[in-house]
């Protein structure tokens, strides 16, 4: 009893520190279905008007096309990241590779130092190979940026698979490829799953690459859509509307987070522990 009482100040302090986040996310939910009188943050009326953009393209432009594009964008990135990380991570964890040390260090440096700084170089590479202003180009770049993390995570998961499993597989007459596919890959499923979740959330939220590498293209993802909608100079200047679009945009992430909280927390923290 005394123990619980003495924790009250601590909980209060924590609550105070968390207040900005709590307020922001609380109002993200509340504001999408209410109106507030001018000069006040406290809503006084319930309304569904802010969600009209879902059915009426005149409000902010069609939202469904960007949604489908974003789904496609995310799915492609997840697929690339999974395939390349699962093979690359395995090679670095278990196979004979020349310059292993150097490659591993390289992956780690690329991971630790996200080279969005190199966007100028990326921009030029895409121009040279003709993928500038295309969805494919942006997908490739985003997947590449995620790869060092993915490879590193997968290497960590492969490292935990007992060597004996592979030795036993080799003894049983299976080729190294079969051993990987049928014996090792099933052991790292949790890793693949966590990586897929992480990549999906990351790709879903990506804004800069589509904006910079495909500025005048005919596709829009939800991030660029939301940014266009919430432009302060737009005719639709209305934070309740921005938040509705934003909440719509974030719903899939919230759903994933609600279902897979444990795994996500692990990869967001543990993933970088090396």
């Amino acid at each position: 009893m005394r123990r619980t009482l003495s924790l009250w100040p601590l909980a209060l302090l924590l609550a105070l520190a968390s207040a900005p986040i709590a307020i922001m996310y609380l109002f993200l939910l509340v504001d999408t279905v209410t109106n507030a009188p001018p000069g006040s943050a406290i809503p006084n009326a319930l309304t569904l008007a802010h969600w009209r953009f879902l059915v009426d393209p005149r409000v902010t432009g069609d939202v469904w096309r960007p949604t489908v594009t974003t789904l496609l964008f995310t799915a492609s990135i997840v697929a690339i990241v999974l395939v390349v990380s699962s093979t690359g991570g395995y090679a670095l964890s278990r196979l004979n590779v020349p310059f292993r040390r150097f490659l591993l260090a390289g992956v780690l440096v690329m991971h630790a130092f996200p080279l969005v700084t190199l966007i100028i170089g990326v921009f030029l590479v895409l121009q040279f190979v003709g993928l500038y202003n295309t969805l494919t180009g942006v997908i490739l770049v985003k997947a590449a940026l995620m790869l060092p993390f993915g490879i590193w995570i997968m290497k960590g998961f492969y490292d935990t698979v007992p060597w004996e499993i592979e030795m036993a597989g080799v003894q049983d007459g299976a080729s190294r490829f079969t051993v990987w596919r049928r014996l090792v890959l099933p052991q790292v499923k949790p890793g693949l799953f966590a990586l897929a979740l992480f990549a999906a959330i990351d790709a879903w939220g990506e804004y800069m690459l589509p904006r910079i590498l495909a500025p005048s293209s005919d596709f829009q993802v939800l991030s660029t859509y939301l940014n266009a909608v919430s432009d302060p100079d737009s005719t639709t200047y209305n934070f309740n509307l921005f938040k509705s679009v934003g909440l719509f945009y974030m719903l899939p992430i919230l759903a994933l987070y609600a279902i897979f909280r444990e795994r996500l927390t692990n990869i967001f923290g543990g993933g970088t522990k090396g």
Partner: peptide, 15 residues
Amino acid sequence: RLTPVVLYAVMWKWF
């Protein structure tokens, strides 16, 4: 950390 950066920025602007 989970929130897409554009939305996160919008929320800060509102704030």
